[in-house]
């Protein structure tokens, strides 16, 4: 082994060592900044209130696990439950009783009362939930479980 190649070898060893040392500091810091996964509460059914909480043409936002759900009662009296998070940029939507539409105030997105995106920037319809009435209780269940 020549003197030069020994020096080159030592140079690389030093560089590699420094890089590894640097990485060993950066890696834990980097990993630390990523929040750990919070387990999703496996709630499949929730009571939104009683019939008297929902006069015709009214709405209420409840939370099913981590998902906000908008429960609305149409003017005709039937219920609808939809995911309350706008599919555009994550704002919480609201029910406009006068036009019976769902509106997102952030970027002026509109959905019809069935949750279909009808105007503005929302790219997808709102997620659906089932509504059942048990005695006078309004029960919301996840669609796939109904």
């Amino acid at each position: 082994m020549t003197k030069q190649s020994r020096r080159t070898f030592l140079d690389w060893l030093l560089r590699g060592g420094l890089t590894a040392w640097f990485a060993s500091i950066i890696y834990p810091v980097f990993k630390y900044m990523i929040p750990p996964d919070a387990p999703e509460l496996n709630i499949s059914q929730i009571e939104a209130g009683t019939l008297s909480d929902f006069p015709k043409g009214s709405s209420k936002i409840i939370r099913m696990g981590r998902t906000p759900v908008i429960v609305l009662r149409k003017k005709k009296g039937d219920f609808k439950a939809l995911e309350a998070t706008c599919t555009h940029l994550d704002c919480t939507v609201q029910f406009k009783t006068d036009t019976e539409q769902i509106w997102c105030a952030c970027h002026n997105g509109f959905y019809d009362v069935e949750g279909r995106n009808i105007s503005g920037p929302p790219p997808r319809p709102l997620g659906q939930f089932n509504v059942t009435l048990k005695d006078d209780k309004v029960i919301i269940t996840k669609k796939d479980l109904a």
Binding site: I61, I62, R63, P68, I70, A84, C86, C91, T92, V93, Q94, C104, A105, C106
Partner: peptide, 10 residues
């Protein structure tokens, strides 16, 4: 309020 809808004029 995490459960309130986004207000108008946001």
């Amino acid at each position: 309020d995490a459960l309130a809808p986004a207000p108008a004029g946001i």
